[in-house]
Design a protein around this nucleic acid. Sequence first.
DNA 1: TTGGAAAGTCAACAAGGCTGACATAAATTC
DNA 2: GAATTTATGTCAGCCTTGTTGACTTTCCAA
Lengths: 164, 164
Amino acid sequence: MAEAPGGEGLLYLTDEQLRKGIEAMFFAYRGFTADPDRILETMDYGRAHHRAVHFIHRSPGTTVSNLLAILAVTKQSLNRVLRTLIDEGHVRVEKGKVDARERHLYLTARGSELERALSDAQRARMRAAYRAAGPQAVQGFRQVLEAMMDPEMRVQYSRLKDGA
Amino acid sequence: MAEAPGGEGLLYLTDEQLRKGIEAMFFAYRGFTADPDRILETMDYGRAHHRAVHFIHRSPGTTVSNLLAILAVTKQSLNRVLRTLIDEGHVRVEKGKVDARERHLYLTARGSELERALSDAQRARMRAAYRAAGPQAVQGFRQVLEAMMDPEMRVQYSRLKDGA
DNA sequence: TTGGAAAGTCAACAAGGCTGACATAAATTC
DNA sequence: GAATTTATGTCAGCCTTGTTGACTTTCCAA
């Protein structure tokens, strides 16, 4: 293998390699969202609904402000999406017992069905990609993605990663 | 190392592992776009402008329909973005010499400056992530992303990957 | 009891997707 | 040469999902 200019095997850090990584992210992210998007549009939902449903499924009973922190949107924006999910029977709200100001969010049976459909579609692609690339590649994939996150988001991610 | 239920080392294909990969993509993509986004908003541009500038830089002289295929948006949507880039002197248009219906797109000096600023910001984060994860991880990262793309997009990506 | 946090709501706005319709110039085909 | 197709641009109108600002209600805690 040829060595980098500095002679330290840093060829993978050239601008050219980085640019390829950037384009890989762009094209892959489109694939990543394509399958759930197709399901969502049949029911007049968008990606914002998917995200809300995903994280409510992941952390049942999470509060609105928790969700705001994870999704990094304004409460007005989140509220609009939650409103439709609640009105259409996908999400159930419970007033907090300890702190009654808080609203705890849960998926209904219908909501769980939707979540299942969405994540099945997304996981199928992810599984195919994982299988094609192999376990070692997957480990690298996760390492690079984690390093790419903002530190605050790495915390959110780790919280989820290490179990509810 | 523990073996998967099937006894074939497939632990990395469990739903739990796939879900982590899905969330890693979500959080990482936000980091991925955060730095250029900050630059863009100072000049009333959005991600759509970034994408156009990126691919015109990548393939100088590319046509409008080429760009439409790569970006996978409607011509009306692209045109709106292209219009502002041209009007504000970031992109130059040239009528095709072989086929005069075609419009060939180039970055102006100003446009190149903008491209530089945007990609410097994005590459800095990518470089840090690459460095933190190491060359082997980067290889896996690219393998998984490539496997995650839609086949048509993998073609687009490979075209770019293998030189102009 | 009062200040402030959590949550919700209303209004208004913007970016950037979309569709459909239509115009024009140039190339291609018949 | 006429008809058709292709590449592009543009107008109008719509949607989702983001934004800010203002205001209310609820309710915990000092």
